[in-house]
Amino acid sequence: MAVAHRAPAVSRVPPRPASPQRTVRTAYRGRMDDSSALARLDRRVADCRACPRLVEWREEVARTKRAAFADWTYWGRPVPGFGPADARLAIIGLAPAAHGGNRTGRMFTGDRSGDVLYQALYDVGLASQPTSVSADDGLELYGVRITAPVHCAPPANKPTPGERDTCRPWLVQELRLLRPTLRAVVVLGAFGWQAALPAFAEAGWTVPRPRPAFAHGTRVALDGLDLFGCFHVSQRNTFTGRLTADMLREVLRTAAEAAGLP
């Protein structure tokens, strides 16, 4: 089994007014001594300011906050991937929400989408606990890394094609670093699928042509790696029953088996 990843500590109530810059330093305090290539990439991701619209939005949200989270120091930066550097399974999906990942600094954390995803990961034995509420809650992932095709929270949860393409090099680099151990990937949603396939090609995998279409339950073989499609864990999908807990657990369980995870 791959080494578990424990989230770095982050203070929820700071002694002075919040700032996105100070939040990053606090949240990465537990990682700064980690000289691994993936940790260095995570730090570079968190400093990215390549998309002006996303920078303006994420920082405005971090300043104004939501009343329910008035005592939080919002992350207010791009949200790096979460999980061990030797992961055998990756999950890729549009993740940072304005008051979720943009607040907590962890993928799929602090919103209803994350509630569904982490509960399912726990149910199939891939997470140490069924909830992910903050970066200091002790959650560990077992052999799994979660990342996104766009690392910043976009207005209305809709990044533009240009923002998606600008963010792709981060995903390409992350995939290259994970490649020695990576054996399976679950891609959440059509947006993630459309962003991930070019990234896999740029990272060195042979992607079929024409590129396979997204569908829930799709399984594609890529040079020793199994790629799985899954409906996104968005509220729209889970509230309407388009994606049920059983459907999500089945995809995760099948992908874990393909990755050789117990």
Results as ranks from 00 to 15, higher is better:
residue 50 A to R: 04
residue 188 L to C: 09
residue 105 G to Q: 08
residue 53 R to G: 12
residue 153 A to F: 00
residue 26 T to H: 09
residue 135 A to S: 13
residue 112 R to L: 14
residue 84 P to N: 03
residue 92 I to E: 01
residue 205 W to Q: 06
residue 54 L to W: 00
residue 87 A to G: 06
residue 257 E to G: 11
residue 226 D to Q: 14
residue 27 A to Q: 08
residue 56 E to Y: 00
residue 202 E to T: 02
residue 168 R to A: 15
residue 114 G to W: 05
residue 84 P to G: 14
residue 65 K to S: 11
residue 33 D to V: 05
residue 97 A to Y: 03
residue 179 R to L: 10
residue 5 H to D: 13
residue 26 T to Q: 15
residue 39 A to K: 07
residue 54 L to H: 08
residue 246 D to R: 14
residue 69 F to Q: 13
residue 244 T to C: 12
residue 220 V to C: 10
residue 68 A to H: 07
residue 64 T to F: 13
residue 217 G to L: 09
residue 260 G to E: 07
residue 91 I to Q: 08
residue 79 V to Q: 09
residue 174 E to V: 03
residue 74 Y to I: 03
residue 240 T to S: 15
residue 3 V to H: 10
residue 66 R to W: 08
residue 114 G to A: 09
residue 111 D to P: 00
residue 161 P to I: 03
residue 209 R to F: 02
residue 23 T to H: 11
residue 243 L to C: 07
residue 76 G to F: 01
residue 257 E to Y: 03
residue 89 L to E: 01
residue 170 W to M: 12
residue 16 R to V: 13
residue 101 G to N: 04
residue 218 T to I: 11
residue 66 R to K: 12
residue 80 P to F: 01
residue 144 V to F: 07
residue 34 D to A: 14
residue 200 F to Q: 04
residue 134 S to W: 13
residue 99 H to C: 15
residue 255 A to F: 07
residue 7 A to V: 07
residue 241 G to K: 02
residue 235 Q to G: 14
residue 48 C to R: 09
residue 12 R to K: 13
residue 2 A to V: 06
residue 163 E to Q: 09
residue 182 L to G: 08
residue 167 C to I: 00
residue 142 Y to G: 13
residue 113 S to F: 01
residue 239 F to Q: 11
residue 78 P to A: 12
residue 53 R to E: 15
residue 158 K to H: 08
residue 90 A to K: 05
residue 230 C to D: 02
residue 140 E to K: 09
residue 150 V to F: 00
residue 134 S to Q: 12
residue 120 A to C: 12
residue 251 V to G: 09
residue 60 E to K: 12
residue 33 D to E: 15
residue 72 W to G: 12
residue 47 D to A: 15
residue 18 A to P: 13
residue 19 S to A: 15
residue 202 E to S: 11
residue 79 V to C: 12
residue 70 A to T: 01
residue 47 D to E: 13
residue 223 D to Q: 10
residue 203 A to W: 01
residue 49 R to T: 02
residue 198 P to W: 01
residue 236 R to M: 08
residue 201 A to H: 06
residue 251 V to R: 14
residue 101 G to T: 01
residue 2 A to I: 06
residue 25 R to P: 00
residue 25 R to H: 11
residue 79 V to K: 01
residue 157 N to H: 03
residue 103 R to T: 04
residue 157 N to M: 13
residue 177 L to T: 01
residue 76 G to Y: 00
residue 147 T to V: 03
residue 95 A to Q: 04
residue 139 L to W: 05
residue 204 G to P: 13
residue 207 V to P: 03
residue 217 G to Q: 06
residue 117 L to T: 02
residue 261 L to H: 05
residue 166 T to H: 04
residue 204 G to Q: 07
residue 95 A to K: 00
residue 37 A to F: 00
residue 47 D to M: 14
